[in-house]
């Protein structure tokens, strides 16, 4: 096995294992911090896909922004939250959770079947890229190419997403403001 394969399997194990822990633990704070590990492992997987810029963005936005936001919401919503968590039954597999487990497991089986039938490694365009295009080396930087493409070919999606982001942030600030008199 090459080093890349070893790294891939270690990172995949970290990602899936920590995601399992997030889903199974009863402690909300612990699950948030394990989610942090999942996101970092995913950033590693992105690097293995030769997408270094996406990996850095993942770390900056998810780990730096989203996770801190979730922690804030957790701390602002008080300790009834925690009591509620203690009350719910804590076993990973119990009778009440059986339908959900069944659904998730069956969905997993269906998707694996679809993946086996789709045979993505032999898709025409993937094969064409593998055989005829100059494949980027591991130490090439993709940032310059992404920047040029973002400002030329993907200009319309870029502008619309910036407007949407502004709308979402204004909406969030509007929702989170304190109303006078009502509370």
């Amino acid at each position: 096995m090459s080093l890349v394969q070893v790294m891939f399997y270690v990172l995949a194990a970290v990602v899936v294992g920590s995601a399992f822990f997030v889903a199974s633990t009863k402690n909300l704070v612990r699950s948030i911090f394990m989610f942090f590990i999942t996101l970092l492992g995913l950033a590693g997987l992105y690097v293995l896909c030769l997408a270094d810029f996406v990996a850095v963005t993942q770390i900056v936005i998810y780990v730096g922004g989203v996770l801190v936001l979730i922690l804030f919401a957790f701390m602002l919503s008080g300790k009834e939250n925690l009591e509620l968590l203690q009350k719910q039954d804590n076993k990973f597999i119990s009778l009440g959770k059986l339908p959900a487990l069944l659904l998730a497991g069956l969905f997993f089986i269906v998707m694996v079947n679809v993946l086996g039938k789709a045979d993505v490694d032999n898709l025409q365009w993937v094969q064409m890229t593998k055989n005829f295009m100059p494949f980027p080396k591991a130490n090439d930087s993709t940032v310059e190419n992404i920047g040029v493409n973002l400002m030329t070919f993907y200009l319309l999606p870029f502008e619309s997403i910036s407007i949407l982001l502004m709308m979402a942030l204004i909406g969030a600030a509007h929702l989170a403001r304190k109303e006078r008199g009502t509370i």
Binding site: T57, F135, P157, F158, A168, A172
Partner: peptide, 28 residues
Amino acid sequence: YDKILNGGDVFALFAIVLAAATTAVALA
């Protein structure tokens, strides 16, 4: 496998930004 137009990477970036916006609104 698309390192010339960078379609996958660029839309992954868009999806990350959308996820951040979703989280902000949902937490509010």
